[in-house]
Design a protein around this nucleic acid. Structure first.
Lengths: 120, 120
DNA sequence: TTTGGTACCTACTAAATGGTTAGAATTACT
DNA sequence: AGTAATTCTAACCATTTAGTAGGTACCAAA
């Protein structure tokens, strides 16, 4: 006798949530994608934007994201070096996830100032 | 001269994405919420549903989720013990995130069988 | 010649996370 | 009496993940 309104199949290797989390579940991954967003970001800009990340983690994540075709990397053969990162089509498809994450945080976690928002 | 189409403020402590990730970013957290979903799940059911999780991680996460008011815990004073977990109102608000995660995984990561899905 | 700026890499260390094993509690069933 | 069932705890260990510190490369400007 099931009382479940919505029963999901077990979360094994073929579980789409697990698959996404394997790719995107790192501490910094979604925050980096969020910062690049629909724009063009240089390495140095990202370092400043993602407060608190170490250089090692940033390039490590960036390399991983490029490898997994979520991020495009454009290198200008200049001195000093200039590298631009943008989201690929696949990377852009992660933005709805990030948006929901931002929405949830905004509505429930981050203290809002003023803006008498009557719990809507 | 900015070429960014969409510029986000830096991701510091007040970044809603970061706040959400701090709460939900664990290896198992979102998968557990996904499995409970809109239903009622017992501890043992969850253990079977979230394939590969250890008992320790499961109760540890469950305790953390109860503490953070994402999950309700109903204990029946029976022997053998019976405990039911459901999402709170706040917990239910995480489902859109999980849905997007599932959607992304389904569309891009998990191999689909049959269903000649012409890249739509 | 030294310093600065940009984008990395590598080796080492530290911290966070996760896994294993054992056990407690209590009742029913054998 | 012994075993099973269910939920949960605690101690200990292994692995994974992240942070630190240092270095490379190249050219420009001081």
């Amino acid at each position: 006798m099931e009382k479940n309104l919505k029963i999901n199949p077990p979360c094994d290797d073929s579980c789409p949530v697990r698959a996404s989390l394997t790719l995107l579940g790192g501490k910094w991954t979604l925050m980096i994608l969020f910062q690049i967003n629909e724009g063009i970001m240089r390495y140095g800009e990202l370092k400043r934007a993602v407060t608190g990340i170490s250089e090692k983690m940033l390039i490590q994540e960036l390399n991983m994201l490029v490898e997994n075709r979520l991020v495009n990397k454009k290198v200008y053969p200049e001195i000093p070096p200039k590298v631009e990162y943008t989201l690929t089509d696949l990377g852009l498809k992660t933005l709805p996830i990030v948006d929901k994450l931002a929405e949830f945080g905004l509505d429930n976690l981050v203290k809002k100032v003023g803006l008498n928002a009557k719990h809507q």
